[in-house]
C-alpha cells in the first residue's frame, strides 16, 4: 500500500473539510471494495482516506409511501436487499444489490461507491437510473441534487467537483401498477464484471405501457437510458418488447475487450432489455 493516512468524519461538514484540506489526493472511503484495491495497486494516488461511514446521513435506509426511499450513500448492500420495503417496491435495486461481488463484498460495498466509481459496468447504476434516482451531493458550496441519469459523464468520470461526495440517494415512490427488474450477463454465476446489465421500470395501464425507463450498462462509455418510444403508449406485446430490445441494441455502443465482444454485447443489450421488460411487467401486473 502506498503511504496514506486515515481520517474518520463524524459529519457531512467535517468530511467536506477533510477532503478540502487533503486536496486532490484525499479520497472518500465508503465500503472501500474498489478504492482500497486501486490504492494498494498504486493505480490511484491516495494520500488520505476520509471514512464517511460514521456519518448518520450516509448510512441507513428510510422509506415512506409518500416520500419514497432514501439510502445513505455508504449503506452496505446487504442492508439494501435485506430491507423489505426495498424488496417490495424497488425490485431492480434489491436484485442488483444482491449479486454485486460476493456475500463478503456486500457486507461493505455501497450504492454511493458504485455510482461514484462511475464504471460503465457498475451493476447498481442501471437500477438507480431506471428507478429515477437522485444523488444528494455535499461539497464546499453546500448541497445539491443531481438526477442519477446525469451523474456519470464517461468511464470513471462524473459530475462530482473537487471535495464533493455523495451523501445519499433518493428514489421516488413507484407509481401504482408499476414494476421494476434488473438483470446482468456474466460468464460465471457470481463474482464477475457484467458483460451487459439492464434495468427496467415500467407502469402499466391494463396492457398499455404508460411509462417506461430502461437503462443499460457495460455497452457504452457510461450507463445510459434506452429510448422507449417503441413501448410507451403501446400495449405490451411480443412485438413491442422486441422493438424495445431492438432500440436498446441500436443505442448500445460497446467496445471489444477481454470481457466481451461488440457483437456479443450488442446482442445481449437486446436480450437483457427484453428480459427485464418482461420481468418488470410481471411485477407491475402484481
Amino acid at each position: 500500500m502506498q503511504a496514506l493516512k486515515y481520517a474518520r468524519a463524524a459529519s457531512v461538514d467535517e468530511a467536506v473539510q477533510m477532503l478540502r484540506d487533503g486536496g486532490p489526493t484525499a479520497k472518500v472511503l465508503a465500503g472501500g471494495t474498489d478504492i482500497i484495491v486501486l490504492a494498494r495497486e498504486r493505480r490511484r494516488k491516495v494520500e488520505l482516506f476520509v471514512d464517511i461511514k460514521h456519518i448518520p446521513e450516509t448510512t441507513g435506509i428510510s422509506y415512506d409511501s409518500s416520500n419514497g426511499l432514501t439510502i445513505g450513500a455508504a449503506t452496505p448492500l446487504y442492508q439494501i436487499y435485506g430491507n423489505s420495503d426495498v424488496v417490495r417496491h424497488y425490485s431492480a435495486l434489491a436484485q442488483a444489490s444482491h449479486v454485486i461481488g460476493g456475500t463478503a463484498i456486500q457486507g461493505r460495498a455501497s450504492l454511493g461507491g458504485n455510482l461514484a466509481n462511475s464504471g460503465p459496468a457498475g451493476d447498481s447504476i442501471p437500477a438507480q437510473m431506471a428507478l429515477n434516482g437522485t444523488a444528494l451531493i455535499a461539497g464546499p458550496n453546500g448541497r445539491r441534487e443531481v438526477p442519477i441519469v446525469d451523474f456519470c459523464t464517461g468511464p470513471g468520470q462524473n459530475v462530482l467537483g473537487a471535495d464533493e461526495f455523495i451523501v445519499s440517494l433518493h428514489f421516488p415512490h413507484p407509481a401504482a401498477h408499476s414494476g421494476s427488474a434488473w438483470e446482468r450477463f456474466i460468464p460465471r454465476n457470481e463474482m464477475d464484471i457484467a458483460v451487459c446489465n439492464s434495468a427496467t421500470y415500467l407502469v402499466l395501464n391494463g396492457d398499455v405501457v404508460t411509462e417506461a425507463r430502461i437503462a443499460l450498462g457495460a455497452v457504452g462509455p457510461k450507463v445510459f437510458m434506452v429510448p422507449t418510444d417503441a413501448l410507451v403508449g403501446k400495449p405490451l406485446t411480443d412485438e413491442t418488447i422486441a422493438a424495445a430490445g431492438e432500440a436498446a441494441k441500436a443505442t448500445a455502443t460497446p467496445i471489444d475487450d477481454m470481457r466481451g465482444s461488440v457483437k456479443q454485447r450488442k446482442h445481449l443489450s437486446d436480450v437483457l432489455t427484453q428480459r427485464t421488460i418482461r420481468a418488470a411487467a410481471e411485477r407491475a401486473r402484481g
Partner: peptide, 16 residues
C-alpha cells in the same frame, strides 16, 4: 497479460 486476477481468470465458483 490482460487478466492476471481471480476476477478475470474465471475459475468455477461454488454456484457454477
Amino acid at each position: 497479460l490482460r487478466n492476471a486476477s481471480f476476477l478475470d481468470y474465471r475459475m468455477p465458483v461454488a454456484n457454477d
